[in-house]
């Protein structure tokens, strides 16, 4: 749980530093990722978008309500195993 995983490929067998992160998209479906604590979250985001088939520019990844900087690592956000990332799609509105 406390293992650090490299972004992109979940469940990559590495050292103890890998952690499992859940990424939940806007409709509630979750995707688990194993990622090293020192790996930038950008890899995770890209993997998620690739899997979901969505444009990375149209989604926002949130952790505890805060936007995450893809260049940051889970260590920077003190992410722990089984923590959840939220993937919110872009919002735009003017009227109904």
């Amino acid at each position: 749980m406390s293992t650090k995983e490299e972004p992109g490929v979940p469940q990559e067998k590495k050292e103890e530093e890998q952690i499992n992160l859940r990424v939940a998209n806007s409709d509630g479906s979750e995707v688990y990722f194993k990622i090293k604590k020192t790996t930038p979250l950008k890899k995770l985001c890209d993997a998620f978008c690739q899997r979901q088939g969505i444009n990375p520019n149209s989604v926002r990844f949130l952790f505890e309500g805060q936007r995450i900087n893809p260049d940051r690592t889970p260590k920077d956000y003190n992410m722990e195993n089984e923590d959840q990332l939220d993937c919110a799609i872009e919002q735009q509105g003017g009227s109904f």
């Binding site: 806007s26 409709d27 509630g28 949130l62 309500g65 936007r67 939220d86 919110a88 799609i89 919002q91």
Partner: peptide
């Protein structure tokens, strides 16, 4: 709260 709070809380209206 940012614009995603309510969307996520309601599972995007779900």
């Amino acid at each position: 709260f940012n614009t995603f709070f309510y969307a996520l809380m309601t599972n995007n209206k779900g």
